[in-house]
Design a protein around this nucleic acid. Structure first.
Length: 239
DNA sequence: AATCGTCACAACCGCCGCCTA
DNA sequence: TTAGGCGGCGGTTGTGACGAT
């Protein structure tokens, strides 16, 4: 952003010692922040907070803007393609959330971090293994990621045969196609493995995921009973 | 209907590196 | 050169929503 709130003279001793607000943001606070940034641009968050008349720390304003109010923030469920990208990038970079977020347009590091903690770590916990263990990494690489690839491909195939938005939901197909385009370029450029290799691994394990999926509408529940059995057989998890 | 447990997500905290005076 | 301020990042916590009992 170009315009910085550098010409703010709205400071007084009272302001300096005012009680800072914490906790959830109100609609009024959001409005103030949006208005101020629309006029003056973002950056220099401490003085921005003062000049905008917000009884918040600069950090709090920055976080609220970047994670919630920014117009290009994408909200809603993490798509399959995004899940695949997160797993792929995390396997390369670890907990470098902001770096990972740079490759998922509209997603924030906070959102990705939350996704990892609530979904991925949950499954590690269910498998009674450490999320950083080789076992779990193998499970991700040889089961979870190939499955995501299959699901992405299946969704794309279904979409191509479908002309009616009513059957799949127009928004979902659009979002899926958009993300697939992005993820395929990124994943394909991976120096370690790409979609083809992932699919190969998937077939090597000789699993009939298609029928499995038909019988199990797991969708967001990434590991189901059969998966646990498979993991137990393949990776000797103690369950 | 009430209570409890779990999940998802927003927000805060502490640390670190960079910049500037 | 250095000290202080600031922004960015990753870890952690608080809390509302929701489902199970």
């Amino acid at each position: 952003m170009d315009v910085k709130p550098r010409d703010c003279v709205h400071q007084s001793n009272e302001d300096d010692h005012m009680e800072l607000r914490r906790g959830p943001w109100t609609v009024e606070e959001d409005f103030k922040l949006i208005e101020y940034i629309a006029t003056h641009g973002e950056g220099r968050w401490n003085s921005l907070a003062r000049c905008a008349g917000l009884k918040r720390t600069g950090k709090s304003c920055r976080l609220r803007w970047l994670n919630y109010l920014r117009p290009d923030v994408r909200r809603g469920n993490i798509t399959l393609e995004e899940q695949l990208l997160i797993l792929e990038l995390h396997s390369r970079w670890g907990n470098r959330w902001s770096k990972i977020a740079q490759h998922l347009p509209g997603r924030t590091d906070n959102e990705i971090k939350n996704y990892w903690r609530t979904r991925v770590q949950k499954h590690a916990k269910q498998l009674k293994c450490d999320v950083n263990s080789k076992q779990f990494k193998d499970a991700m690489r040889y089961l979870w990621m190939p499955r995501l690839v299959e699901r992405i491909q299946a969704a794309a195939a279904t979409a191509s045969y479908t002309t009616s938005d009513d059957q799949l939901g127009g928004a979902q197909v659009t979002s899926s196609s958009y993300a697939l385009e992005n993820s395929s370029t990124t994943v394909a450029s991976s120096d370690s493995f790409g979609t083809r290799e992932l699919s190969g691994n998937y077939y090597n394990h000789n699993m009939d995921f298609q029928s499995l999926e038909q019988n199990n509408p797991w969708l967001d529940n990434l590991f189901n009973a059969e998966d646990f059995y498979f993991l137990q057989q393949q990776f000797n998890f103690n369950m």
